[in-house]
Design a binder for these strands. Sequence first.
DNA 1: CAGTGAGCGAGCTTCCGCTTGACTT
Length: 745
Amino acid sequence: MPKKLVIVESPAKAKTIGQYLGTDFTVRASYGHVRDLPLKKLGIDPAKHFAVDYVPIAKSKTILTELKTLLKTSSELYLATDFDREGEAIAWHLTELLKPKMPIHRITFHEITKPAIENALKHPRTIDNKLVDAQQARRILDRLVGYKLSPFLWKKVYRGLSAGRVQSVAVRLIVEREREIKDFKAEESWTLDAILKSKGGDFAAYLAKVGTTAKLELSNQKEIDVLKKKLEKSKLEVEKIDSADSQLKPQAPLITSTLQQVAARVLHFSAKKTMKIAQDLYEGVDVECKGSIALITYMRTDSYQMSEIAKKQAENLIAKNYGAKYLPDRPNLFSKKVRGAQEAHEAIRPTDFSIRPDEIKGQLTKDHFNLYHLIWSQALASLMAPAQVKTTTVSVKSDAGILIGRGRELTFDGFMRLVPDVEENFVQLPKLAEKEVVTLKKLDSVQHFTEPPGRYSEASLVRELEKRGIGRPSTYAPIMSTIVDRGYVTKLASRFTPTEVAGIVIDLLVEHFPDIVDYNFTAEMEDKLDDIAEGKRELEPVLEEFYTPFAKLLSEKEKTVDKKAIVEEATDKKCPDCGKPIVLKLGRYGKFYSCSGFPECKHTEPYLDDKFTADEEKEIKEEVKELCEKCGGKMAIKQGRFGTFLACTNYPKCKFTKAIVIGSSVPCPNCGKELIRRNTRRGKVFWGCSGYPDCKTAYWDEPLAEKCPKCSNLMVNKKSGPACSQCDFKKETSESPESVVAKEA
DNA sequence: CAGTGAGCGAGCTTCCGCTTGACTT
């Protein structure tokens, strides 16, 4: 008997649905998109009503052949791709490629549960062409932007660069954050922090108000010293005790972005690693007695919803394990949608709450267990009762002003029984009475500086992009690989730092194509896509409206933007071959000096990345004249991954290299040889003993020819000034607040 | 805490969004 063919996107989903549907159905996966614009050319003809040239994706060919074969013996076709714009388009592309002759039904569901699938089968529909058009508009627009702007960059900066609706905004965020950090001016402020002694015990308080009026904001030490003296002599009396009860609500269950954030914070996983481990959990893990089973629902999602079945199961589990009072009076609502969310899937939750992480710990790797544990507990906690917190505020009257002490007590743990909030700091105040006189046990004036914003991590970049509705769950991790691969950013200590070319490209795009790299470009595009999906507008006029002015602007900029002004910098050097001025250029492999007479004169010189002084540069040029110790050949200055060095010109025949030695003229305290400047593998400067590897003495900061008066170890020149390399001794200097902040950052 | 390298300017580069598998070292 002929079967009914069901096509979904993911093979793991196909497996689960296959079990629900029984033998009348064959379920197969498309493995995502099956047809797309060609890779090597634009594939769009704006002059012919934006005619598109779709081609089957190379990877899809085998699955397409199999689907065609299956169709021959099938009576009906069910297109069960995801319930979103992309899913609708995949369904349409499938019909275009397979050209099925039998009845076609489009079915959708938000959750992979038996009732949801049975219900979907009862309500088939046809493909929604308006939604397909919305996807095509998205696809065509992204292609036009990416495949038109990237070549513009090849022409005006250098080859291999890229630009796009999503990646360029991600780079822009990172570039602008770096500039904020660079321009940051720390502001000084002071607080008076006290420990007060009462009959019932000690508690912490701070001076909150001077007199009875203004909120305390003191910017210099003089003011605070006056208050400190006043306070030290003052009588202290408890004026008022207030307490208030509040609730602490659990977090929503995890979605892709928050999974990546929490896994980074708690487990120090990269976004890529998080997604790989989650994929394993989704596809199924061998669990004793149960065989291979999927542990979690789909991991690329933007919806906080959970299926009713799952919620019921979790609630039963909560009641059974912790008691009914751990269930909330009213269900917790996580209604705040992600901007531009498509909500085709559930939140990330365990497929079966009864599979407790600790029960299967022995059958999972440490990474798989840890991630499953996070997913399981956050999903369960999201359905638990809020925690109850009692906040007590005590005001203490003094001659200097009002001191405030605060207590925060957990009166009911609720969901925190499962996921304790590490950020929360609970403190209990002693029993106090109004009018009670307390005494001062300790009083410190504490200096504070405002801090610059931090560089983006993978997790915080994803959060920022998601907040602005830019990028999708399936692309968060790849976006970050792309901007690293293209040389726009580097990752140092898990934080993004922009490269020089990133600043150049962003300035160029912001100046000449401000609309495209505007933070609201995606949101505005989404509005237009919604219009298409709702039938308010047609595909072609929307594309026309974008492309006509864009194409005009582009051809204008092709002519007017001057490449030289972007990648060339004048110098006062002259070309030794032809006498023309030498310019500093930025190329694919970094900066280099070039004769301005190029292409007639091809003279180049390496650009020394390290910040050498003029004297040091002279010394290096002397040293390079010495011949190779191994083969007697000529030596040359080379720029390597880790900095500048000297190498034999007979490379690769002779591989002799010599490090450039910048001395400190400070002897090594352990062996007496000179300490010299070097670079670590990551390009960071440090000072090591020239006797390496016999002597492994090394310092992060420039050594000074003096000993610490406290511990007699070597003093070094830290950013904040001279200090001991070993103990906390610091030479008193007229220290600027900026240097303190720079050190702390 | 300790390594290094061609090239670059003119040529095959590039987008975003779905989904996983693996020509073999």
